[in-house]
C-alpha cells in the first residue's frame, strides 16, 4: 500500500478551477518532485495536502485513512509536515523557540505542571531543549539558537523552516521551493542536506522546485503541472525529453540542466 494516495484532487476558487484531477501515489522513502510554470497550482496542491485548503473533489488517503475535512494540525499530527515558499517563521521568537514550538505535539505535561514547574515539567523541558539543539546542529544552525528568527540571513531562514518541519516528526516532508533565492553554492549544500535528512529521518519527500539541477539530481519521479492539469509524469530522464513539458515551461526551446 502506498504511504500517500491522492485521488482526483480538484479545487475551485469561485469559477476558477485551480487544480483538476491531481493524482499521486507516494511510496515510502520516495522523493517525488512537482514542477511547472508559475501559477500552475503546485502550492495549491501542497495547501490541500496539508489541510489548509479543502478540496472541492477527490480524496487524500494517508496510510489508508482519508484526511479530507480534518484541520491542518491533524495532518501534521499524522505525519505530514511542510515548509513554505514565502517563509513563514515565528519571526519574533528565537531560533530555538521556533523548534520547540514545532515539538509541541510531542510535549507531554499538563497546564498545572507547567504553571507550578513540577519535576516532570523540568525533565520534559530539559529533554526538549536538548532535542531541539540536536536538530539545529544537524541543520548547522546550532550557533544561532538565541537569534530571533527574523534576524537570520535568508538561506538560514530556509534551513530553519526545514528544521522546524522535521521537529514535528513527519513521515512525509513537503518542501515548497526550498532553493528559491539561493546561489549555486547554497543550492549544492541544499541538495546534500535534503539527501542527508531523507536518510537520517527515513523520510518520504514531495518537492516543489524551479531549479532543474535540484530536481534532476534528487527526484525519483517528477510530475509536471500546467494550469492545474498534470501534463506529464515520469523519471527525470523522460521528463527532460517530454515535448509537452518543454513547451509548457519555455513555450518551445530547451529545459536547462
Amino acid at each position: 500500500m502506498a504511504l500517500l494516495d491522492v485521488k482526483n484532487l480538484s479545487i475551485q476558487f469561485g469559477g476558477l478551477k485551480a487544480v483538476s484531477d491531481f493524482n499521486l501515489s507516494l511510496e515510502d522513502r520516495e522523493l517525488v518532485a512537482i514542477i511547472g510554470p508559475n501559477g500552475a497550482g503546485k502550492t495549491t496542491v501542497f495547501n490541500m495536502l496539508t489541510g489548509l485548503y479543502k478540496p472541492t473533489e477527490g480524496n487524500i488517503l494517508f496510510e489508508g485513512n482519508s484526511l479530507v475535512g480534518l484541520k491542518p494540525h491533524d495532518y501534521t499530527a499524522r505525519g505530514i509536515a511542510r515548509t513554505f515558499q514565502n517563509i513563514r517563521l515565528f519571526n519574533n521568537a528565537t531560533v530555538l523557540d521556533n523548534i520547540k514550538i514545532a515539538f509541541t505535539l510531542q510535549v507531554k505535561y499538563g497546564l498545572g505542571e507547567a504553571l507550578f514547574r513540577t519535576r516532570n515539567f523540568n525533565t520534559v523541558e530539559d529533554n526538549l531543549e536538548l532535542k531541539s539543539l540536536e536538530l539545529l546542529k544537524i541543520l548547522n544552525l546550532d550557533g544561532k539558537a538565541d537569534f530571533l528568527a527574523k534576524n537570520l540571513p535568508y538561506g538560514e531562514q530556509r534551513r530553519l523552516e526545514i528544521a522546524r518541519a522535521l521537529a514535528t516528526n513527519p513521515k512525509i516532508l513537503l518542501l515548497d521551493e526550498p532553493a528559491a533565492g539561493m546561489n549555486p553554492n547554497e543550492i549544492d549544500d541544499l541538495i546534500s542536506l535534503i539527501k542527508e535528512i531523507k536518510e537520517r529521518f527515513k523520510l518520504t519527500v514531495l518537492l516543489i522546485e524551479h531549479h532543474m539541477n535540484v530536481v534532476m539530481n534528487i527526484a525519483d519521479r517528477i510530475k509536471v503541472l500546467d494550469f492545474g492539469h498534470t501534463i506529464a509524469e515520469g523519471i527525470p530522464a523522460e521528463i527532460q525529453r517530454n515535448p509537452r513539458v518543454i513547451e509548457a515551461y519555455l513555450g518551445g526551446g530547451h529545459v536547462e540542466c
Partner: peptide, 10 residues
C-alpha cells in the same frame, strides 16, 4: 507570530 504556520506545525 503566524497562525498558518502554527497550525501547520501541529
Amino acid at each position: 507570530e503566524n497562525e498558518v504556520a502554527s497550525e501547520t506545525m501541529g
